[in-house]
Amino acid sequence: MKLGAIGCGNMAKAILGGIIKNGLIKPEDIMGADIYQPGLKEAADILGIRTTSDNKEAAQAEVLLLAVKPENYRGIIEEIKDDVKESTIIWTIAPGVTLADIDAYFGRSVKAVRTMPNTPAMVGAGVTAVTPNSQVTEEEAEYICSLIGSFGVAERIPESMMDATIPTSGSSPAMIFMLIEAMADGAVREGFSREQAYRLCAQTVLGSAQMVLESGKHPGELKDMVCTPGGITIEMVKKLEQYGFRNAIMEGMEVCTKCI
């Protein structure tokens, strides 16, 4: 299977790196295109893929990853649409660009899979929402999901839920990073070094997430396990609720969706 990628930024490199690392597609079978030459050279040096500054050359692949900003989709597709074969699967990662938009930009029905990855893909721990259109066979959709599985987890959803995925997993790493930073600030205030504080707090978030995924228990039940009667943890929970901890998170997620 030949894979083309238009755009070789950080997310594209994370995606291609996972695919190569897991042996799903060989580097020599991947063609990356970008007008930004330093980024293109970095992709070639790090990943060992073939590169070009000609988008049309990358567009001749069997799977074409469009890893450019949403506002650039129309122009890129206008440039390459006559070079894309009918059998090519278009793989998108742009928020707000719908499957209908892709057909409209091409001026015809194409095989397209709309996805929404997140930045933890850069460390092989991403979660990516996936919606194929009606032109994509189940076998083709599963193949794209297998590629996505090389850098995290693929979650099939209806397209109507795609915008809600942005605050749920797309933008929310920023919220988690803020949480870790705030926890670390609290730890530094108590005397920990900054390095120790980040390490302890990040590992705590990682371990807590692992408990949710592996225990099958409701997060509230896991929280109750930490909050012993009359203990210090329930005092912390009370103070967080006093300052609107959970409401602040939900409000942030809501405004994120409204901004799409």
Rank of each mutant, 00 (worst) to 15 (best):
M1W: 03
G9Y: 01
G9R: 00
K13M: 14
A14S: 12
I15P: 02
L16A: 04
I19C: 11
K21L: 05
K21R: 09
G23Y: 01
L24S: 14
L24V: 12
K26P: 07
P27H: 00
E28T: 15
E28M: 14
I30N: 02
I30G: 02
D34F: 03
Q37W: 06
G39H: 08
G39T: 05
L40D: 06
K41L: 11
A43K: 11
L47C: 01
A59K: 05
A67C: 10
K69D: 00
E71K: 13
E71C: 05
E71A: 08
Y73W: 06
R74W: 07
R74H: 14
I76L: 12
E78W: 04
I80M: 07
I80V: 12
I80S: 04
D82Q: 13
D82N: 15
T88P: 03
I90W: 03
T92K: 04
A100Q: 15
I102W: 01
I102M: 03
G107F: 02
G107S: 03
S109N: 07
K111V: 04
V113A: 03
R114A: 08
M116F: 09
M116N: 06
N118V: 02
N118W: 02
P120N: 00
P120Y: 00
A121Q: 05
V123N: 05
A129R: 00
T131E: 01
P132C: 00
N133A: 04
Q135H: 09
Q135N: 11
T137N: 05
T137F: 10
E138D: 11
A141N: 12
E142A: 15
I144Y: 13
G149H: 01
S150V: 07
V153G: 05
A154I: 07
A154R: 06
P158W: 05
M161F: 09
M161T: 11
M161E: 12
M162N: 01
P167M: 00
T168W: 12
S169P: 05
G170I: 02
S171T: 06
S172M: 12
P173T: 01
A174P: 01
A174I: 01
F177A: 10
I180Y: 07
M183W: 10
D185Q: 09
A187Q: 00
V188E: 15
R189S: 10
R189Y: 12
E190C: 14
E190Q: 15
E190M: 15
S193F: 03
R194F: 13
R194L: 14
E195A: 13
E195D: 14
Q196Y: 08
A197E: 04
L200W: 02
L200I: 10
L200F: 09
A202T: 07
T204K: 02
G207S: 13
S208L: 10
A209D: 09
V212E: 07
G216D: 01
G220T: 08
L222I: 01
L222P: 03
M225Q: 13
V226D: 01
C227R: 04
T228L: 15
T228Y: 06
T228E: 09
G231R: 08
T233A: 12
T233C: 11
T233P: 10
E235K: 12
V237C: 02
V237L: 02
L240F: 15
R246K: 15
N247S: 13
N247W: 05
N247P: 05
M253C: 07
C259I: 14
